[in-house]
Simulated scan of single mutants.
Amino acid sequence: MRDGNSPDQGEPTHTTESGGGPAAGEPGAVHVIVGTDRTRIVLSGEVDADLGPELQEATAEAEQRGLPIEVDAHHVTFMDSSGVAFLARLSIRSEHRVRLLRVPPTVRFLLEVTRIGELLDVVDDDDSAEPFEPVDSATP
């Protein structure tokens, strides 16, 4: 028996990146963008144990900045316990309540089952937030 997150037998777990958004089986990525008033962590692809070191680095960088943290999960195609632990770690270490933006159904399910969602502010869209301005953005 397989669930919607499991690859078929013989199907590769990871594929190379294509031009569009992440596809199922795409390797995960973590990007930390420091803004003027908050830190945004963007997750994409498969958030699993392979991303362990990157998730730890993102946690350390966000914690060091001391700004409110938001995690954009819009392009996450799969998440295992490593991703759940990352979110829990962020919520415990941050001085501010962590916002989780644009949560896909697979991640929302994990938040409900593990109850980690109770530690985070889950925001369905990012439209209600003020514009995000990276610290190093060039002005026109």
Score class of each variant (00 low, 15 high):
residue 117 G to L: 08
residue 102 R to H: 08
residue 105 P to H: 09
residue 78 F to I: 05
residue 117 G to D: 04
residue 68 P to G: 09
residue 114 T to E: 07
residue 100 L to R: 06
residue 61 E to C: 05
residue 121 D to T: 13
residue 112 E to A: 10
residue 56 Q to E: 14
residue 111 L to V: 05
residue 118 E to V: 02
residue 107 V to G: 03
residue 72 D to T: 11
residue 108 R to H: 14
residue 117 G to M: 05
residue 56 Q to Y: 12
residue 57 E to G: 04
residue 58 A to Y: 09
residue 98 V to I: 08
residue 95 E to W: 13
residue 111 L to E: 00
residue 121 D to V: 14
residue 64 Q to T: 12
residue 64 Q to A: 12
residue 67 L to V: 09
residue 78 F to Q: 03
residue 112 E to V: 06
residue 121 D to Y: 09
residue 63 E to Y: 15
residue 109 F to C: 02
residue 87 L to S: 01
residue 86 F to V: 00
residue 112 E to D: 10
residue 103 V to A: 10
residue 111 L to F: 04
residue 108 R to E: 09
residue 94 S to W: 15
residue 107 V to C: 05
residue 108 R to T: 06
residue 105 P to D: 13
residue 110 L to T: 06
residue 61 E to D: 07
residue 98 V to M: 08
residue 99 R to D: 05
residue 89 R to F: 04
residue 106 T to E: 06
residue 93 R to E: 10
residue 65 R to P: 00
residue 86 F to S: 00
residue 104 P to I: 03
residue 117 G to T: 04
residue 89 R to G: 01
residue 55 L to R: 01
residue 100 L to N: 05
residue 100 L to G: 06
residue 107 V to R: 04
residue 57 E to F: 15
residue 120 L to Q: 04
residue 81 S to H: 03
residue 60 A to Y: 10
residue 88 A to W: 15
residue 80 D to C: 02
residue 104 P to A: 07
residue 99 R to W: 14
residue 70 E to C: 15
residue 93 R to L: 15
residue 55 L to M: 12
residue 64 Q to D: 03
residue 68 P to R: 09
residue 119 L to Q: 11
residue 96 H to C: 08
residue 60 A to F: 12
residue 90 L to A: 10
residue 109 F to R: 08
residue 61 E to Y: 11
residue 117 G to A: 08
residue 102 R to V: 13
residue 61 E to H: 10
residue 90 L to E: 07
residue 105 P to M: 05
residue 120 L to W: 11
residue 124 D to F: 15
residue 97 R to P: 00
residue 86 F to A: 00
residue 61 E to I: 13
residue 55 L to I: 11
residue 98 V to W: 14
residue 88 A to S: 08
residue 102 R to I: 11
residue 71 V to I: 14
residue 69 I to H: 09
residue 81 S to A: 10
